[in-house]
Amino acid sequence: MPNAAPSARPRNAGHPQLARGLLVAAALLLGLWGAWRSFAPAPANAREQLGAQARRIDALEQQVATLARSDQISRQANADLQATLAERDEEVAGLRADIAFYERFVGATGQRHGLAVHELRLQPQRDPQVWHFVATLTQNLNRGAVSSGQLRLALEVTDGGSMRRLDWNVLRQQASAPGVAYSFKYFQQVEGDIVLPRGARPVRVLVRLQPGTGPEVETPFSWSAAAEVAGAGG
């Protein structure tokens, strides 16, 4: 019996082994690349780069702190400027009021008035019983003539439900207390202190002017109004 011819080997019988070999080689290459990435030495200038980055961070932080401080200074300067402008506006308004006041008595077109008390201001002192007063006296009836005399105050107060009057001697705590002297041509501010008895509640102030010649002039002022004017001015 003749020998059977050997069967032909499949052409692709070695391909699976080749593919497996390629996969293993690829895996080894990937492993080696990862190990190199993990354990490869750092660049020679890595320390310099880290130092430069740290210095850059410090510089940026310093710039931020400087800008924040500059902003704070600018805000404070702006607030101070606004306060100064408000003070200057108030001063200008006061000067304009003074000019208007002076023109009323010195100006050629101002109305003529005899001796009078134009304004009274009352200001409390550290001792609550002591009050400082400022009275503005005016006259332009006799231009160029000097008006002189003495000023005294009197108070109408409530004490225990009843009304009574306190004269100058009581307010000055001195028997036969002299008045406050004045002497002016057009206007003058006369000032002094008075002492209120404890428990007395002032209602009205009477400003009495006794000129060297001529009749006495007495002008009443509400205590609350005179004290409010002083508070608004301070």
Rank of each mutant, 00 (worst) to 15 (best):
A100C: 05
F101Y: 10
A79T: 14
A77D: 12
R121H: 06
D98P: 00
L153R: 03
Q129H: 15
D80E: 15
R126I: 12
L155W: 04
F105N: 03
E156N: 09
G110Q: 09
T109R: 14
L115R: 02
G94S: 13
A86S: 15
I73Q: 13
Q82C: 04
D89A: 12
L137N: 03
G94T: 10
L95Q: 12
Q82N: 11
L122R: 04
G94N: 10
S148Q: 14
G144S: 06
A116F: 06
G94A: 13
E119D: 12
P124E: 09
H118C: 00
Q82V: 14
P128T: 11
R121I: 04
Q111T: 14
R143S: 10
V106F: 07
R88M: 09
E87G: 03
V106L: 15
V157S: 04
A77R: 15
R96G: 03
L120P: 02
V146S: 12
V130R: 13
L95G: 01
A135L: 05
L120Q: 02
L115D: 02
W131C: 00
V130Y: 05
E156I: 10
L151Y: 00
A135D: 02
F133T: 00
A86Y: 00
H113I: 10
P128F: 13
E103H: 13
R121V: 04
V130A: 06
R96I: 05
G94C: 00
Q150E: 15
V106Q: 12
F105S: 01
N140F: 05
L151S: 01
L151T: 01
R96M: 10
R88Q: 10
T109G: 07
Q123Y: 15
V92R: 10
A145L: 07
A108L: 08
A154C: 01
Y102I: 14
G110P: 03
R96S: 08
A145N: 06
F101R: 09
D127Y: 06
T136P: 00
G114V: 07
P124L: 07
A154E: 11
H113A: 11
T158Q: 12
Y102D: 13
N142K: 07
Q76I: 06
N140H: 08
V130K: 09
V117S: 00
E90M: 05
A145M: 09
G149W: 02
V130H: 05
Q123I: 09
A135C: 11
